[in-house]
């Protein structure tokens, strides 16, 4: 297991907190809490070690496109980049009201 932390510039605070997903094989859960800090703070706890670069790339790309400010807690059980992006999109869409 590995814990990774990232920060990305963001200017759109989410309207409300949301929780999506399950820490089940190939999936992850996302807890999104709105923050008016101008950044997206991401903490990833993943069951698979050594994918720091992939995580950075996937998250960088996501937050460049969706500049949602807040804290994002990701509890990951070996999700692929595609599933990670889908869960993050689901979280920000549900947080939009």
């Amino acid at each position: 297991m590995q814990t990774l932390k990232f920060e990305f510039p963001a200017d759109r605070p989410a309207a409300r907190r949301t929780h999506v997903g399950v820490v089940g094989s190939g999936d992850l859960e996302v807890l999104m809490t709105p923050e008016a800090t101008g950044t997206a703070r991401v903490r990833v706890r993943t069951s698979v070690d050594g994918f720091d670069t992939v995580w950075r790339t996937v998250l960088e790309r996501f937050f460049a496109r969706h500049r949602v400010a807040g804290s994002f807690e990701l509890n990951d059980s070996g999700a692929t980049p595609g599933v990670v992006t889908l869960r993050l999109r689901q979280a920000i869409e549900e947080g939009r009201e």
Binding site: H19, V22, V23, E29, R45, S47
Partner: peptide, 21 residues
Amino acid sequence: CGPFDRIESPWLEPQGVVPES
């Protein structure tokens, strides 16, 4: 006691298992 109350298991992380909220 939903996910944002964060009463996850304290025993999993020390054993290298990702907890759930």
